[in-house]
Amino acid sequence: MALQRPPKLKHFLWRACKGFLAVKERRLFYRHVVSEKSCSICSSLDETIIHSTFKCATAKEIWAASSFMAQINVAPARSFVERFMWILKNELVTKAALAWASWYCRNKHIFEQDGFNVVEVAKSWVDLAYESNAYAIKVINRTAPTVGPSPSSWSCPSAGTVKVNCDAYLGAKTGLGVVIKSEHGHLLGAAIREEYGGWNVEATRQLHVDLD
């Protein structure tokens, strides 16, 4: 049976691996939103995604309270996706939830500046990650849908409707293609978008296997 993790956890991991989290070094400084790249919490030289989720004072307090600190100290640090691939060895969901909690506490500290116990927050987010599947089964009474292979031939949609087909690929570039056809099979529109990024096929496969 597939486990349903919170969609926000998956979204956080996707954004972190793609480099889309709004840290100073990666996004804000180069878009001229801020004039310097130092961490807003501990004044480290560069506020990177790795720093915000593992090395900042707030993040360190969370990881120090876990059983993973020794592993984190020797993990790769060049990019979040590299470290993410490294920590896939065991207990991925717990580690992902702690990174997620570190990012949440970082934002709460910067934008709300309230006093709160970061370790207790992290524990609650780990619990949320593990309880989400049980909640979905009990309240929604469903499990994650099984995704089968794509059909080998195209069929027309019902009368008065259109059909939208899409596909994606991952590699050195990430691409998404969309085709829209009428009930008679006439082409109504098509589009494609490509991006360069740090997301790779193995990370995507592991994210699907371990979090779904």
Rank of each mutant, 00 (worst) to 15 (best):
M1W: 10
L3S: 13
L3E: 13
Q4R: 14
R5V: 11
R5P: 00
H11L: 15
F12Y: 15
C17I: 01
K18P: 02
V23F: 03
K24A: 05
K24Q: 01
L28E: 01
Y30R: 13
V34S: 01
S40Q: 05
S40D: 07
I41V: 09
C42K: 03
C42Y: 01
C42S: 03
S43K: 10
S44C: 08
T48N: 00
T48H: 01
I49V: 13
S52H: 00
T53E: 02
F54C: 02
C56A: 03
C56T: 03
T58P: 02
K60T: 15
E61P: 10
I62V: 12
I62T: 12
A64S: 15
S66M: 03
S67D: 08
F68H: 09
Q71Y: 01
I72E: 01
I72L: 14
V74S: 04
A77G: 10
S79R: 04
F80Q: 03
F80S: 10
F80I: 00
V81P: 04
E82M: 04
R83N: 03
I87Y: 01
E91G: 01
L92M: 07
A96H: 01
A96E: 06
S102M: 01
C105D: 05
R106V: 03
N107D: 05
F111E: 02
G115P: 12
E120K: 15
E120A: 15
W125F: 15
V126P: 03
A129G: 06
S132I: 00
Y135V: 13
I137W: 09
R142A: 13
T143G: 14
P145I: 02
P149W: 09
S150Y: 12
P151S: 05
W154F: 10
C156M: 03
S158P: 04
V162S: 06
L170D: 05
A172M: 12
A172I: 10
L176H: 07
G177T: 11
G177R: 11
V178S: 11
V178K: 13
I180F: 04
S182H: 02
E183C: 09
G185N: 06
L187Y: 00
L188S: 05
A191G: 15
A191P: 13
I192W: 14
E194D: 11
E195I: 10
Y196D: 14
Y196F: 10
A203G: 15
T204Y: 10
D210Q: 15
L211P: 01
L211K: 12
L211H: 07
